[in-house]
């Protein structure tokens, strides 16, 4: 599995400090961090991307989940230096450049999938990766996708609904895109599946 991390050129600038480069939400970033800096702290403090929340700092709550080369990981359990060269997507990067909400974000709004919102960034990133892997989850599979994230407010029912709704929105968007493409290419769209 080749990843962007092989391109990272990590250097030690002074004792205990390392120069790393990350691509965060599409933008290249050069950061100088101590060896022990967590990726979560690097994102929040060094890069001021405070959308990533930190609840427990030992892997249990899921609030800090981000995508590293497209894979969901706990940013509180990864050292920033380990992420050198990787493509990181935080909750800030889920929104389209024009501000349109992603399917998962829209589904949370539609289904009232949040109350205080503390847990929400972790759910959004986790579900984004979960639907990329399984675009058509059953209600049980939706629960499996979010099984590692804690929420103190909602009681989870609306979050499960939001996973299913997001899958629906993604399918609709996919169909529209396909229809658009086939029309552009001058082909007659075939009957749907």
């Amino acid at each position: 599995m080749a990843s962007a991390s092989e391109q990272g050129g990590i250097t030690q600038s002074s004792p205990g400090l390392f120069d790393i480069s990350l691509i965060v939400n599409g933008a290249p970033q050069a950061v100088r961090v101590p060896a022990r800096r967590l990726l979560s702290d690097c994102l929040r403090h060094d890069l001021r991307l405070t959308g990533t929340h930190v609840g427990c700092e030992h892997g249990v709550c899921g609030a800090c989940t981000v995508l590293v080369d497209g894979v969901s990981v706990r940013s509180c359990l990864m050292l920033a230096v380990t992420a050198d060269g990787a493509r990181i997507t935080t909750v800030e990067g889920l929104t389209e450049p024009d501000g349109t909400l992603s399917a998962v974000q829209q589904a949370f709004a539609d289904c009232h999938g949040l109350q205080c919102g503390f847990c929400t960034p972790g759910f959004l990133t986790t579900i984004t990766a979960g639907l990329a892997e399984n675009p058509d989850p059953s209600p049980d599979q939706a629960r499996e996708i979010i099984g590692g994230n804690l929420c103190r407010c909602t009681g989870y029912q609306n979050i499960v609904q939001a996973v299913l709704r997001a899958a629906e929105l993604r399918r609709e968007a996919g169909l529209k895109r396909e229809a658009g493409l086939t029309r552009e290419a001058g082909l007659t769209p075939e009957a749907g599946p």
Binding site: T65, V73, E144
Partner: peptide, 9 residues
């Protein structure tokens, strides 16, 4: 073993 996100790492 744990949850999918933990199993990713």
């Amino acid at each position: 073993v744990a949850h999918p996100v933990i199993r990713n790492r």
